[in-house]
């Protein structure tokens, strides 16, 4: 199961957990699994987040593959000038 790390502002919406383990083969599946486990996170995910899988930021790529031992971080939504 992939390790999914939450920034501290999200932890309150996920029973105070910094890290949760979620099953999934893609970023999309992991995010869906996260919301299923912690419905309180839905508005945060809806507002938009960036996801880093094993160090690589994968913006809006729900189909990006996730390995069983992947380390995933939720990050604030990114853009640029």
């Amino acid at each position: 199961m992939a390790e999914l790390h939450l920034w501290s502002g999200l932890r309150a919406l996920a029973d105070g957990k910094e890290m949760v383990e979620i099953e999934g083969e893609t970023v999309g599946q992991v995010l869906d699994g996260l919301v299923a486990a912690y419905p309180g996170l839905e508005p945060a995910l809806k507002r938009g987040v960036s996801v880093a899988v094993d160090g690589q930021i994968v913006p809006n790529s729900r189909n990006h593959p996730v390995k069983p031992d992947s380390e995933i971080f939720l990050l604030q939504k990114l853009a640029g000038g």
């Binding site: 501290s8 502002g9 508005p43 945060a44 507002r47 604030q76």
Partner: peptide
């Protein structure tokens, strides 16, 4: 304000971020 803003802040605070380790 969106869901992220804690209670008790002025309505002009519309988003709140908290991160660290």
């Amino acid at each position: 304000a969106d869901f992220s803003v804690p209670e008790g802040l002025h309505p002009n605070v519309v988003r709140y971020f908290d991160s660290g380790r």
